[in-house]
Amino acid sequence: MSKSLSSPASLLSAPAQNAAAGLALRCSNLHRHLGQGEGRVHVLRGVSFEARRGHVTAIVGPSGCGKSTLLYLLGLLDQPDDGSIWISDQLMSNSSDLDRTAARCEHIGFVFQFHFLMLEFSALDNVMMPMRKLGRLSEAEMVARARSLLADVGLGEKTHRLATQLSGGEQQRVAVARALANQPSIILADEPTGNLDVTNSNLVFDLLTKLAKENGQAVVLVTHNPEIAQRCDEIKPMRDGQFC
């Protein structure tokens, strides 16, 4: 099933090699347990992985195999029990909450199965939220960039609509634009098309991959959809907390 399997052999000298190989993200020997007491499950069992800029990697596998857990670890939303994660050249797995939060803001964009838009705000405001936090652009520049991103995802005419006034597909496209707002080096997508019909699934996936490739961003997506997975540059099948 794997189109190409990444070798974890060179992971020890990660920072130096990341830059050379165009790696946006690397992890090594990740372990993660979930639950407590008798319900404690060893979800990830020594996973190593790398994501290159401009490449789209699909992580596939049955429910409960640890795909999403891995994605959240890579996205620094969670901390591993063991193992290391490098974002660009920096070891982030053991860093403080503030450092991980700052890294998320600057380097990582998320797209979830559910759009998770702020329903009280317009599409434009939703896209501007990550930019406001990063604080690198002026208000006018943020508006211009948000408009441009919304135009890229085909919502140039609906920038001022509230999130509630958009269809499911449109909401997910706003979520894609929001993920790209700070020009992150990594896009992590958890079942980004899982809640959409075929047409919208293809539309969202095409947008995500096209924009990411144009900007040289590494895309890691978790999916159950074999058609979507087949269209990725690389497929990483998972089973029982490990890559097959």
């Binding site: 996205g75 503030l98 939060t101 998320r104 979830f112 998770f116 702020m118 936090k133």
Partner: peptide, 16 residues
Amino acid sequence: TKEIAILRSMGYTRSD
């Protein structure tokens, strides 16, 4: 909670 989580995923700190 979902909105709080998504804001945290965007880089908003606990203080924010």
